[in-house]
Amino acid sequence: MRKIHVIGIGAGDPDQLTLQAVRALRNTDVFFLLDKGEVKSDLTRLRLDMLDTHIPDGGYRLVEARDPDRDRAASGGAYSPAVGDWRSARADIYERLIGEELGTEQTGAFLVWGDPSLYDSTLAILEEVLARGQVAFEYDVVPGISSVSALVARHRTGLNRVARPVQITTGRRLAEGLPDGVDDVVVMLDAHQAFRRYADQDIDIYWGAYLGTPDEILVSGPIAEAGPRIQRLRAEARERKGWIMDTYLLRRRPEGTQGGRQQGTREG
């Protein structure tokens, strides 16, 4: 029976891999990498750096395939079908890679940014492949340090406050409004910087881009003050690299308080 490891590799720093992840890397025969094109070649290089760090003697095989494009212009009722189509296109690739490139007694692995359980499609795609019944395999999941954990660690703050909930959502959802009854909101996948609409409220932002990599950028402070700096740094970084991955925490200040932590910026 073929076996697959789905390995969470953290936000980008090779030192953030867990011991369990390193063990899984070292008993893998074939690593499957989806190439996102020349613009995002940094992402492939970071994965290769992790393999070189933790498997210095090699002994494995790399198999690369081009990641299918997704319709990022889809919105409203067309958004979920567009994501479904993209996942099915990925499932076609996974099915072919596992069936053609992995021997029946071998172990393959997919390296997943952050943690495979948080806003990642790998597990759902593997389940779709199994449901098709054309290729059989077992798989396990190795948790990783998510960008959420990396973000709050780098800002030296907690994810939640005493006896209060925290919610993780997307920029698309945040644009519809802050969730009721939640004062701490982590936002991922925000290409349009939805935090800007809350600049007139008593909310602090803890923002980070390229977390765990040499290009890491951190900014924190009241949205009204930190927001323009984030917009500028984000635009400059995207122009320089051609892509950006960022995450942020919004924290509503208790009534009667004046501002949050002093705003700061750290660039890698």
Rank of each mutant, 00 (worst) to 15 (best):
L111F: 01
S80M: 12
E176F: 00
E267M: 15
M188T: 06
S80D: 15
W86H: 11
H192K: 15
L19Y: 04
K40E: 13
P254Y: 11
L174A: 10
D52N: 13
S146K: 07
R66I: 13
L126T: 03
G99K: 14
T170V: 12
L19I: 11
G158M: 12
L62H: 00
M245Q: 12
T122C: 07
V186T: 10
M50T: 03
E138P: 03
P214Q: 03
I205E: 01
V83N: 10
A131R: 11
Y94C: 13
A235W: 08
D15S: 13
T213W: 04
K36T: 00
L48C: 07
I4N: 04
E64F: 11
M245G: 09
T257S: 14
D115K: 04
L159K: 07
Y79L: 12
G259Y: 08
G177T: 04
D42I: 10
G108L: 07
G158A: 14
A175M: 06
D52F: 02
D57V: 11
F31T: 01
A226S: 05
Y248I: 06
K3G: 08
L118N: 09
R240W: 01
G181T: 06
S147F: 04
T53R: 15
A11L: 07
E95T: 11
F195I: 05
L250I: 09
E38C: 07
K40H: 11
F137P: 01
Y139L: 05
D42R: 13
